[in-house]
Simulated assay, not measured.
Amino acid sequence: MVSIAERHQQIIDKLQKEGKINVADLCAELNVSSVTIRKDLKLLEDKGLLFRTHGGATLNNPYTIDRSVNEKEKIQSSEKMQIGAKAATLLQPNDSILIASGTTVLALAKNIQPSGSLTVITSALNVALELLRHPEIEVLQLGGLLRKSSSSVTGPYAESILADFSFSKLFLGVDGIDLEFGLTTTNVMEAHLNRQMIKVSQKTVVLADSTKFGKRGFGRICGFDDIDQIITDKGISDYVVKALEGMGIKVTIV
């Protein structure tokens, strides 16, 4: 019979290999009850070896915190610029697009070199200011309650403006992507605005560096049925890529 110490080591080994584990799989592999596995996970969490999640555990803290846009811009900056450059190649002449908030979509704005006219509506002040240098781009800034930490607006006024438009693409930034919980942000009002953005867009493209995977923010934006494409960097695990592609999502890695 496998000892408790051996079982704990097997759990840690599997977690280090996969980055994330669930109770049902561990029960089947180790031939023990879910009660036993949950006790194991609690003991290992108390030792600082993992973080428990709904139905399993993860190697890294799955909960994101709200950081200022200036702080977030310094995290994975080169990866974000590569993601933004790739996203910019999706634009078509005479496109009408919607850009949400976040430092990764700001990287998209910095990489846009329009060929022909382009109409952009955005909730992010920094995105709008970045695009002002292009005379070919018509920029409409959404109004509403200004979130200082993200330099973007939220609220019912911004949502009501969106009802009058239809967009070919939405470029969406997120704070967390969890295979069970979906796409999230740290602010519930921003999550609600993002849902309205998805409704008025023909295609939703998520721009997210690899550190966002396995994370959860406070406000849930949507599930994976609402997403068409995710552009990320090579830090994403093969397991997550296969899971996303299995849901019909195009995953582009830069």
Rank of each mutant, 00 (worst) to 15 (best):
H8R: 14
V105F: 07
Q16V: 04
R133P: 07
I198Q: 00
F167N: 03
A88C: 08
C27H: 01
K39M: 05
A87R: 01
H54K: 09
P93Q: 09
G143V: 08
N22L: 01
L162N: 10
E18G: 01
S96V: 09
V35R: 12
G235V: 08
T204F: 01
I37W: 01
L49T: 04
T64I: 10
F224S: 05
V139M: 10
T204A: 10
K17T: 09
E136A: 15
A85H: 10
G19T: 05
E45Q: 15
R38H: 08
N61K: 08
F165H: 14
L41A: 08
G223I: 01
V2K: 11
D66T: 07
V188H: 11
K14E: 14
R147M: 10
E6F: 06
T104M: 08
G116P: 12
K17L: 13
S201I: 00
G102Y: 01
K72F: 03
T58E: 11
Q10E: 12
A100K: 00
D238P: 06
I11M: 05
D209C: 08
I75S: 06
L108P: 10
I99A: 03
G182A: 05
K234N: 15
G176M: 02
L118C: 06
G246A: 07
A208C: 09
R195P: 04
K17R: 14
L50M: 12
P62L: 05
K215Q: 14
T252E: 15
E159T: 09
K86G: 01
I121V: 15
V69I: 15
T232W: 02
V153K: 04
K203F: 06
D175G: 15
L49R: 11
D175L: 00
M1N: 12
M81H: 14
S152C: 12
L118N: 03
G248I: 05
K199N: 13
V188F: 14
V206R: 00
N31Y: 07
V2C: 02
L142V: 09
Q113K: 14
S201F: 00
V200K: 11
K169A: 02
G219H: 03
G155K: 04
L15P: 09
V188R: 09
T53P: 08
R195C: 05
V205S: 00
F218K: 09
G176E: 01
L140I: 15
H192W: 04
L140G: 08
P156L: 11
T119Y: 13
H54R: 11
I227F: 05
K14Q: 14
T89Y: 06
D209S: 13
A163T: 12
A243I: 04
L108T: 04
T103N: 10
R216N: 12
L98T: 02
K199R: 14
E180Y: 08
N22H: 13
K148G: 07
N31V: 02
G173N: 01
A128Q: 05
